[in-house]
Amino acid sequence: MRSRPAADALAPGLCQAFDRGGEIYAQGEPATAVYKVLGGAVRLSQLLADGRRQVGGFYLAGEMFGFTDAAHHDFTAEALAPTRLMAIRRDALLTRMAREPLLAREMWSFAAAELARAQRHFMVLGRKTACERVASFLLDMARRTGAGNGDAIVLVMCRQDIADYLGLTIETVSRMMTRLEQSGLIALPSSRRVRILDAEGLRALEE
């Protein structure tokens, strides 16, 4: 991991670079900063008491993570690809937000988007079938990357990550991907590339 001074609207902060698999912070470590993804992607995961892993979310370029009012992180954050981040100390950010209304509004927008995504994910896990969960995940990735009909989504996360995020097994995720492909809703040029062929059909499943 390499660090250098940041030049960003959220500065003062520290730009950090992580190789694929690099640990940004660990579950249980003090929560002293929030992070903005400048490039690459980040996975949050939690090790449960029985040894299972639950993936809590994926963060792409332009998104922020690490928001918590707890003293310690509940999740481990790792880079899914070569990733650049801006780390902003929480105490410094709170001080700036108190005197800069535009910054406070921007942080509110980031936090509100994160809450909305968490609420949607809660509904996915609680109410949807395996096929509906995979369809919802692909639509979420399409929305966040700006992909439309005919566009390919490059999935930086592996299928085990997707399975642990959706509360499924990797075999079930693979079967559901194949089912969606056979239904003409998506194409699978490779295991990490998904082409959206029928966004409306996916949305019908999602709903």
Rank of each mutant, 00 (worst) to 15 (best):
D50Q: 05
S45H: 15
G28Y: 07
A41P: 04
P5I: 12
G66S: 13
R117C: 02
L38I: 14
A104E: 00
A87N: 04
A130F: 03
C15R: 14
I88Y: 06
K36I: 15
Q46K: 15
A79D: 01
A71G: 14
G146F: 04
H73C: 10
I196M: 01
G201H: 00
H72A: 12
A118Y: 10
R203T: 05
G201R: 04
L166F: 04
T95H: 08
V124L: 02
M176H: 03
V55D: 02
L60T: 11
V37H: 00
R99P: 00
T169P: 02
Y25W: 07
I196Q: 00
R143H: 12
V173H: 01
S136M: 02
A7W: 04
V173W: 00
F58G: 06
D69W: 13
N149R: 05
G21Y: 09
L47K: 11
M97L: 10
A111C: 14
A163V: 03
D50A: 04
M86Q: 10
R43I: 04
G56T: 10
V194I: 12
T172C: 03
A204I: 00
G167Q: 09
A142H: 06
Q182E: 13
V37F: 01
D69V: 11
L93T: 09
W108C: 05
A41V: 08
K128Y: 09
L60V: 07
Y25Q: 07
G167H: 07
G39V: 12
L205Y: 01
A70D: 15
F58C: 02
Y59C: 01
A11L: 13
M1W: 14
E171I: 00
L48S: 07
R120D: 14
V55N: 02
F67T: 13
A49M: 09
